[in-house]
Amino acid sequence: MVTRQEQLLDAAIELIGSQGIRSLTHRGVDAEAGIPAGSTSNYYRTRDALLEAIVARFAERERLSWEAIAGVVQPSSPKELAAALEHFVRDATGPSRALTLTRQLLFAEAAQRPSLQPVLASNAKAIRAWGAQWLKAVGSAHPERDCQIVLNYLDGLIIHQLAFPETPFSPARPLLGLLKALIAS
Rank of each mutant, 00 (worst) to 15 (best):
L135Q: 01
L151S: 09
S18M: 06
L162N: 05
S96L: 15
Y44A: 08
Y44V: 09
L15H: 02
L24Q: 07
S23Y: 07
G38F: 08
I69P: 01
Q19I: 00
L81W: 07
A126Y: 02
A132T: 08
L85P: 06
E80V: 01
I21D: 04
G38V: 10
Q74S: 14
L99V: 12
K125Q: 13
R63F: 12
I69S: 06
V150F: 05
I159L: 12
F164V: 14
A12E: 03
I54F: 04
V73S: 06
V72H: 14
A70T: 07
S23K: 10
A56S: 15
Q133M: 11
P36E: 03
H142T: 08
L151A: 07
H26S: 14
R103C: 08
R113C: 07
T25I: 01
E14Q: 15
I158N: 04
A126P: 02
A126C: 06
L135H: 05
W134L: 02
P174R: 10
A11D: 01
R22S: 14
S41I: 15
H160F: 07
S41F: 07
L105H: 00
F164R: 09
L24W: 05
V29N: 03
Q133F: 06
I158R: 09
D48I: 13
I16P: 09
A124M: 12
F88V: 08
V29P: 06
L81Y: 10
L64F: 01
T3L: 04
Q161G: 08
D30H: 06
L154I: 07
R103A: 13
E109P: 11
T93Q: 09
Q7I: 04
Q112R: 15
S65R: 12
A49S: 14
D30R: 02
A163F: 00
A108G: 12
L15G: 02
A129Q: 13
R103Q: 13
T93A: 07
K136P: 00
S77R: 10
A70M: 07
L178V: 02
L151D: 12
L176D: 09
A68Q: 15
A11Y: 03
G28T: 04
L51R: 11
E62G: 02
L176F: 00
V29I: 13
L105A: 12
A121Y: 09
L8A: 04
Y44E: 05
V138N: 04
G17K: 01
